[in-house]
Write a protein that binds this DNA or RNA. Structure first.
Length: 732
DNA sequence: CTGATGGGCCTTTTT
DNA sequence: GGCCCATCAG
């Protein structure tokens, strides 16, 4: 059978598994996606399952799109055959949005609902905190409240079922309730609501549930380890009747715990479906022996996992290069030089390389260095196109035209560009709207029809009615006007583009972005506004990463999931960066950081580079860094260590015991005089029971103790607490 | 009401 | 080092 060509025994077993619940536990590079893809094709082609009876959920839109095109390619395109028509395949969020629009009659929103992103949520919550709850924004910040509410939603807890047991929880409860009402009146949902509403609808509405259960024959879930409680419940509901549930995942790659993901869903699955067939995919087809062995050594340290016997038949491959850069600029330079060299020697295509980091902020130095070297690159995430201020403004206009009750969008555009409608005028409008029992947007439209001179007089009043007329005008033509024309009209009548032109380069960038947006709306002009809005809400930039450009990819470790590259460079492998400082005190979080490292390492096919710096600048302040603890777990024989030029110089200077003409590098606030109560100062030679001889490069007070940074001749840089370190001063 | 200015705060990670 | 926000003069 062509479908099964090139598959190993375990993979075939998975693809052709009989009906019933199946769990495929697979290591990295074991062909998970391949199995899932072929399983879908197998069901349609060999089992005659109609595509519209299959729901497959993936983690990103990109994965879904790729999978769909592969399935289409795989299946013979006989004339008359439907191919994949009707096959529901997308992210959890997109799938739920589709279901929600279809079943809007059974939901508290209309089928025209808009989707609020993080910044919309934030704007809404800020308004609630100050105007409605009268809370101190310092103590109860919008993002803290939203985080808690998000966690509750992911666990399917509503304001009704939430049982606060602390004062803080009481505040959360009130905020949650107010937030929910505001969302519903704006006919809006946030990301979590897509899951929550869908799950609750299935839970409470038997008629709808049965309809879906009777339609859906097969449910397939990719990246199952990253599902949260809401997603798990949706999956359970959908596959309830036939139990044809096919889950693929790897608990070692679970990196979304902070988003409510719970790999214990794997255990839950086992107890919820006693008849579950579990299939292990342990052969790795991606990475070299060396890379696999090193990754395994890192992940094996985690306690809470089922050990796997990952293996590969590939060759050992090159050793892993561990590079100690002087600082982040040296690090970036090494990245660029390495890629340039590998490309020049035809070892790899530029597009086969990826640079991965823990936080988005780290991309900056890398970008600068790439630009300075004149080399192109692809950046994933960071400042997403749709998240830019000017683009959000543009979208807000469209959203408001589409849905007049959209409070957040109204607030956003009512005075953008400045047209003389300030907070006070908006407050007056709100009072008026309340008295009429309608939303502020609806009240505004009403004002366009019958101006009420007594409501708001003077300049503010005419500004308001002026805007009301514009808005009413757009709304009256929205239905009959193509999207691009509508947006053009809005831009013309508001003078938005002109307002962006402040003569700076940034201003020009903003204009270009809006023009790009205009181009986009012209290209898609035949789709309804609501679909366009949904598309831009749910499709992040990660997804339309253009394969066309042959350039290295810069991306976070999180967005690297599911991808693979010939050459991978992991940067910033330092304590506080990876593992991240926010995870240092929590075992579970630390294990997640380790999985993140593991995910990064296992993206590499042939060559892996691990980089850390001697000192890193964080928030404009430079500080010494310690190599990540995860590096220590890699067997030494798999590594080959080198150091940057800047690095070795500085070391030479410090390890030649003060003979250099350059002063020892010390932090700005340090002084040669030892402050009272400090035992050590920079430049001193010390002897440590375990690390041997070294030289102090920095010492500073830390609580009642003293934190000493020492470069040892053998062991390199260590940071020690004076009271614990068995260390004595040498004459010198 | 707007735009300029300076202070405080910050950075996980994404749909 | 940069972004967001509060504050203030015009």
């Amino acid at each position: 059978m062509e479908l099964l060509e090139g598959l190993n025994e375990a993979q075939i077993k998975a693809v052709t598994a009989p009906d019933g619940p199946v769990l495929v536990l697979a290591g990295p590079g074991s062909g998970k996606t391949r199995v899932l893809t072929r399983r879908v094709a197998y069901l349609i082609q060999d089992h005659g399952v109609p595509p519209w009876r299959i729901i497959a959920v993936t983690f990103t839109n990109k994965a879904a799109r790729e999978m769909r095109s592969r399935i289409e390619n795989m299946m013979e395109k006989e004339p008359g055959a439907n191919g994949t028509k009707g096959l529901m395949m997308g992210t959890f969020h997109a799938t739920c949005a589709t279901i929600m629009r279809r079943e809007a009659a059974h939901l508290p929103v209309s089928r025209e609902f808009v989707i609020y992103d993080t910044s919309d949520q934030l704007a809404l919550m800020k308004e609630i905190i100050t105007t409605e709850l009268g809370l101190d924004e310092k103590r109860y910040s919008a993002d803290k409240l939203l985080n808690r509410i998000s966690t509750l939603k992911n666990d399917l807890i509503t304001p009704e079922t939430f049982r606060p047991n602390s004062y803080f929880d009481e505040i959360i409860h009130r905020a949650y309730e107010a937030y929910r009402i505001r969302l519903l009146t704006a006919d809006a949902v946030d990301f979590d609501d897509l899951l929550l509403h869908t799950a609750l609808m299935f839970r409470t509405n038997c008629e709808v549930l049965l309809r879906y259960q009777n339609t859906v024959d097969h449910v397939l879930v990719d990246e199952f380890q990253d599902t949260n409680a809401a997603q798990y419940e949706i999956v359970r509901h959908l596959s309830g009747l036939r139990k044809n549930l096919f889950c693929v995942g790897d608990e070692d790659q679970s990196i979304y715990r902070w988003r409510g993901a719970d790999y214990k869903n794997v255990l839950r699955l086992k107890s919820d479906y006693p008849e579950l067939t579990t299939i292990l995919l342990e052969q790795n087809y991606r990475s070299s022996q060396t890379i696999l062995e090193a990754s395994r050594a890192v992940i094996d340290v985690n306690q809470q996992r089922t050990p796997k016997k990952l293996f590969t038949e590939k060759e050992a491959g090159p050793t892993i290069i561990l590079y100690e850069a002087y600082d982040e600029r040296d690090e970036a330079q090494f990245v660029v030089d390495t890629i340039a060299t590998l490309v020049a020697t035809h070892e790899v295509e530029p597009g086969g390389c990826a640079v991965m980091y823990r936080t988005n902020a780290q991309s900056r130095t890398l970008e600068e260095t790439f630009i300075r070297s004149g080399l192109p690159y692809k950046l994933v995430g960071a400042t997403r196109f749709y998240a830019r201020r000017e683009i959000k403004d543009t979208i807000a206009y469209l959203r408001l035209v589409h849905n007049i009750d959209d409070r957040v969008s109204l607030r956003r555009v009512i005075n953008t560009p400045p047209r003389g409608i300030g907070d006070k005028t908006v407050a007056t409008l709100d009072v008026y709207a309340d008295s009429q029992g309608v939303s502020a947007g609806a009240a505004l439209l009403h004002l366009a029809d019958s101006p009420d001179a007594n409501l708001i007089g003077g300049r503010a009043g005419s500004a308001l009615t002026g805007f009301a007329h514009l808005l009413a005008g757009w709304r009256s033509v929205a239905e009959s006007t193509p999207l691009g024309r509508l947006l053009q009209l809005i831009l013309d009548e508001t003078g938005f583009l002109e307002s962006l032109d402040d003569g700076t380069d940034q201003g020009q960038d903003r204009i270009d972005n809006v023009l790009e947006m205009l181009k986009l709306t012209n290209e898609v002009e035949d789709i309804p506004l609501v679909e366009f809005l949904e598309e831009i809400a749910l499709v992040s930039e990660v997804d339309d990463l253009t394969e066309a450009t042959n350039a290295p990819t810069l991306l976070t470790l999180h967005s690297a999931k599911g991808l693979e590259f010939d050459v991978v460079l992991l940067v910033g492998l330092e304590e506080g960066v990876l593992p991240h400082s926010r995870s240092l005190d929590d075992l579970e979080q630390m294990e997640e950081e380790r999985r993140l490292m593991y995910v990064g390492m296992t993206r590499a096919r042939q060559r892996l580079y691990l980089l850390h710096t001697f000192q890193r600048t964080v928030w404009g302040k430079s500080d010494l860094s310690l190599p990540s603890r995860f590096i220590d777990d890699i067997p030494a024989h798999l590594l080959s260590t080198t150091r940057g030029a800047g690095m070795s110089q500085s070391y030479r200077h410090q390890t030649t015991w003060g003979k250099s003409s350059r002063p020892p590098r010390i932090s700005e606030d340090d002084s040669t005089a030892s402050p009272a109560g400090q035992q050590f100062k920079s430049g001193q030679r010390v002897f440590h029971a375990r690390f041997g001889e070294g030289i102090v490069i920095e010492s500073r007070r830390s609580g009642n103790d003293e934190e000493v940074s020492v470069v040892f001749e053998e062991a390199g840089l260590k940071r020690l607490m004076a009271s614990f370190a068995n260390m004595e001063l040498l004459e010198g």
